[in-house]
């Protein structure tokens, strides 16, 4: 017991030390007065700490931007951290946010198991936790805004099958399989396509979620299978990389079915251009709104739903204009819109 307490103290001290090191990351995302200067009373200002997986992803970057704006509008203080997809860094981030005395913690868990000690720290510090996307393996949370990545993969690939008329060659370009969402999207797609005997998955290369890598892997695949009919991309960047690979190989991407997930600005722009068939969009704006709404409810003592499914909307030429409006992206020309 004693040693546990000691280890705990050491960890918190360590968190304090690293807080000063990571101050650059935190400072650039912080708005309003610092949490530490606020006295810990029940009617204190709402200080939201959001631990992100990785802010280099346009999706999370958009979400942070909206949350920051909403926080400023409502007079909350807002701090975002990012872990570059490293579960250990995320734990440190969470400890830092706790040391910084946030009174609401939003966690976008990289790994549902690795994040548990962080949630437990928040529990013992009495800080309510809102989990995003995935359910943690332990610890208490007030609300879970979840995405069903397996279902998303299946939905995306059922559209692939539909557009191919149940027959054709498909490339399943996945994200890094050590990221659970990437793995689940890929699995969801693979399982769905198994239902169609006429469809063959000719390759499932792994990419590092960058357009560069996706373009390279897709170019490699085209060496063997020049006649692929469709690509499922684990996210928009991967799908865009595949589209670029088609273009570079002298194939018009408009003649191919390319379907991905996320609905980022670059993704929707490609839908507008007609090169990207469909993106299963989970708008960062929507997610940010749900997060801020839930945070405000918890802070003022109102009840919140334990689990909220965050719906993904298929965006294609039929509904692209409305989707661009919902997302609030500054996209002006949209020739492919119907």
């Amino acid at each position: 017991m004693n040693s546990m307490f000691q280890r705990r103290t050491t960890r918190l001290t360590f968190a304090g030390l690293t807080a000063s090191l990571s101050v650059a990351v935190v400072a650039c995302s912080a708005t309003g007065p610092g949490g530490s200067s606020v006295k810990d009373t029940s009617d204190r200002q709402l200080v939201i700490g959001h631990s992100y997986q990785d802010l280099s992803s346009p999706y999370f970057a958009d979400e942070r931007k909206v949350e920051k704006a909403l926080a400023a509008k409502n007079g909350y203080s807002y701090v975002a951290t990012q872990a570059s997809n490293n579960p250990a860094t995320q734990l440190t981030d969470i400890e830092n946010l706790i040391s910084r005395k946030v009174n609401l913690l939003v966690i976008d868990a990289i790994d549902p198991n690795a994040v548990v000690p962080g949630i437990k720290s928040a529990n013992s510090a009495g800080i309510p936790v809102v989990m995003l996307i995935r359910k943690p393996a332990g610890g208490d949370y007030r609300s879970l805004v979840y995405l069903d990545s397996i279902k998303d993969g299946a939905t995306a690939c059922s559209e692939v099958a539909k557009r191919l008329g149940g027959k054709g060659k498909v490339v399943n370009l996945t994200g890094p399989l050590d990221i659970l969402a990437a793995k689940e999207r890929s699995t969801g797609c693979t399982n769905e396509l198994k239902k169609y005997p006429g469809i063959e998955i000719v390759a499932s290369p792994q990419t590092d979620f960058t357009q560069r890598d996706a373009e390279q892997k897709m170019t490699d695949v085209l060496q063997v299978h020049h006649d692929v009919d469709a690509v499922f991309g684990g996210n928009d960047d991967i799908a865009l990389g595949a589209i670029r690979a088609f273009t570079s190989a002298g194939i018009d991407p408009k003649t191919k079915v390319v379907i991905g997930i996320d609905g980022t600005q670059a993704g929707l722009q490609a839908v507008c251009n007609g090169t990207y068939t469909q993106s299963l969009a989970t708008f960062p704006v929507k997610e940010a709104e749900i997060v801020m709404d839930t945070a405000a409810k918890i802070h003022t003592g109102k009840s919140v739903q334990k689990e909220v499914l965050f719906p993904a909307v298929p965006v294609n030429a039929d509904n692209i204009k409305a989707a661009v409006k919902t997302a609030g992206y500054p996209i002006t020309s949209c020739p492919a819109a119907k």
Binding site: S56, S57, F209, T210, Q211, R212, E215, D237, L240, G241, R244, T247, S248, A266
Partner: peptide, 8 residues
């Protein structure tokens, strides 16, 4: 090559 500059 990519016709885009991405931070990634």
């Amino acid at each position: 090559r990519l016709a885009t500059a991405s931070p990634l």
